[in-house]
Design a protein around this nucleic acid. Structure first.
Length: 538
RNA sequence: CGGGGUAUAGCGCAGUUGGUAGCGUUCCUGGUUUGGGACCAGGCGGUCGCGUGUUCGAGUCACGCUGCCCCGACCA
């Protein structure tokens, strides 16, 4: 990180204190002022100057610090839960509004189903309960009683529930229990519902946005008269996700289908999009499930088809969560902080004035007012920060940390020359341009940034996808991250062995690759059924 | 659930053989500043996680409890 003048002054101050201590230490050697203290102070000086941890030093720590320092989210004082701060939530709201529109364009309607689900519902689909039981939080009582001293101290719950409730880990059960009442005839189908909500999964280990006990998501649940229609819907929604994640978030993904062991509990097929993080791991960013008739049978949802036959309804479900925020961060951001794609940035352009006198500020204010109006008329969100409580250098660093795509700086000097300084966040390149027509330039620049960060991410991903047929070579190379395209014999045993040996898992059977003659399995040497994508995952 | 660590000002930390708590930062006030995270001066802010015990006296010692973090198990 570039050391600023002010930081240098700060170091000098710290060293003055240090030298003071050292002098003291020399004077009082017989009293043995601890050398370790001096080292501790040195360490403190180093930490203070470091700012954000570098990605190359500790990727995991860099991520955690960035989420907090960019004011996206923080750990709540509740086990495994997070508080999403206004800036982070603004990004989520943009994700929501754009996706919501895309869903509706395919005929989906929004609805809402309860947070609490009777425990017995979960048990109705055998595989489903197997997959989720361990992650369920259970409501066993209602009404707390306070203690006898009436000092407001809440003690034990008083009334036990006859039937315990679970907090939804996902809503297939309550929704299909409801669909039973909605579906009598093929004329009632399809039903295409989505809900934006929270779910709760009692995870052992959590990380902000990537895995939290409570998280926000959308879950779509559709019911269809035919198998073909349901399968088509599941694939259609995966395409909606992939188009959104690549087109709006500028995050490239690999699309594919999950292996049997990795697929959703209760699904016949799980389609997935897998993003690659900068440390070469896979991040499952969205899934779409073809559920067959499993939930139709479990909840007795049947209808009279066109041939006058009673038939169980066919189902899909599909979801993306606040985990997308993690994918966003781990694809684009750098050692200076967040890098946001313009199409998702809550603020796309920030304008910082630099002035000495009130007259100068007023002149800049007037000039900026017209620029802001023109930008807004182009649909660009712009923030003018003439707060005189903060110095320009502070603002520069802060807006870089927050990932604002474009920064304009206008000072008294620029007013005289008719210029403006333009900085793009993705490359941190600065240039001075004529202030006339700057709005058109900014509009073009935003598009350039969107394209550039996507291309950069695609290049990075493609450089880290390897074809591999040799298990020894694989075991060695996978330790440095990356996606590996390998022939697989289709057995769960092989999958387990790979996981035990390397911690890597089969992410998917990717679409769009040649599967004729997949070769022989690199672990067992048996004929392969297909080539699969293997990676370590978040 | 097992192993380890930790708990002192909003945040990050120091606190020696037990003697009544301090540093940095944040925040507030005033002034000087403002083209890359300002400086100087002054000020506010803590029943030291909770409980019991030992002691004339506990942040410090003992015992118990609780929260959080790390490692493992777990993770559609």
């Amino acid at each position: 990180m570039v050391r600023t003048k002010m930081q240098v002054l700060e170091v000098r101050k710290k060293f003055r204190i240090l030298i003071f201590f050292l002098t003291f230490a020399v004077c009082l050697t017989e009293h043995s002022i601890c050398i370790s203290k001096i080292f501790k102070l040195l360490e403190a000086v180093a930490i203070e100057l470091k700012g954000l941890t570098k990605r190359s030093e500790n990727y995991s720590q860099w991520y955690n610090e960035l989420v907090v320092k960019a004011e996206l989210a923080e750990q709540a004082d509740v086990r495994g839960c997070m508080c999403i701060r206004p800036y982070g939530y603004a990004i989520w709201e943009k994700i929501q509004s754009i996706l919501d529109k895309k869903f509706k364009e395919t005929g989906v309607q929004n609805a809402y189903f309860p947070l609490l689900i009777p425990k017995s519902f979960l048990s109705k689909e055998a595989e489903h309960v197997e997959g989720f039981a361990k992650e369920c939080a259970v409501v066993t009582h209602y009404r707390l009683k306070t203690n006898d001293t009436h000092d407001g101290v809440v003690v034990d719950p008083e009334a036990k529930l006859d039937e315990e409730l679970i907090l939804r880990p996902t809503s297939e059960t309550i929704i299909w229990n409801t669909y039973k009442n909605w579906i009598k005839s093929y004329r009632d189908l399809p039903i295409l519902c989505n809900q934006w909500c929270n779910v709760m999964r009692w995870e052992m280990r959590t990380r902000l946005f990537l895995r939290t006990s409570e998280f926000l998501w959308q879950e779509g649940h559709t019911a269809h008269a035919t198998r073909e229609e349901a399968e088509e819907r599941a694939k259609m929604m995966l395409k909606v996700y992939a188009d959104f994640v690549e087109g709006v978030m500028a995050v490239p993904v690999v699309q594919g289908v999950k292996s049997e062991t990795e697929r959703f509990a209760g699904a016949l097929d799980t389609y997935t999009i897998e993003a690659m993080t900068q440390d070469g791991k896979a991040l499952q960013s969205g899934t779409s499930h073809f559920l067959g008739q499993n939930f139709g049978k479990a909840f007795d949802v049947s209808f009279l088809n066109k041939n006058q036959e009673q038939e169980y309804a066919w189902a899909t479900s599909w979801g993306v969560s606040t985990r997308l925020m993690g994918a966003l961060i781990m694809t684009h951001s750098d050692d200076n902080g967040l890098v946001l794609p313009p199409r998702l940035a809550p603020i796309q352009v920030v304008i910082v004035p630099i002035w000495k006198t009130d007259e100068q500020l007023e002149a800049i204010n007037n000039k900026v007012a017209t620029i802001c109006d023109t930008l807004k008329s182009k649909g660009i969100t712009v923030k003018y920060d003439n707060d005189d409580q903060k110095r320009p250098g502070f603002k520069f660093a802060d807006y870089e940390l927050k990932g604002i795509p474009v920064r304009l700086v206008i000072g008294a000097r620029d007013l005289e020359n008719g210029t403006v300084e333009v900085m793009r966040r993705d490359t941190l390149e600065k240039e001075t341009r004529n202030i006339d027509g700057i709005e058109d330039y900014v509009e073009k620049l935003l598009n350039d940034i969107q394209d550039n960060i996507f291309k950069k991410a695609v290049t990075f991903r493609d450089e880290h996808i390897y074809e591999c047929n040799d298990y020894e070579e694989f075991k060695q190379k996978i330790q440095n991250g990356g996606f590996f395209l390998c022939p697989w014999d289709g057995t769960a045993e092989t999958e387990t062995k790979i996981k035990e040996d390397t911690q890597a898992t089969i992410r998917c059977v990717p679409f769009g690759i040649d599967q004729t003659n997949p070769g022989v399995d690199m672990v067992t040497g048996k004929p392969a059924t297909c080539k699969v994508l293997i990676a370590k995952a978040y």
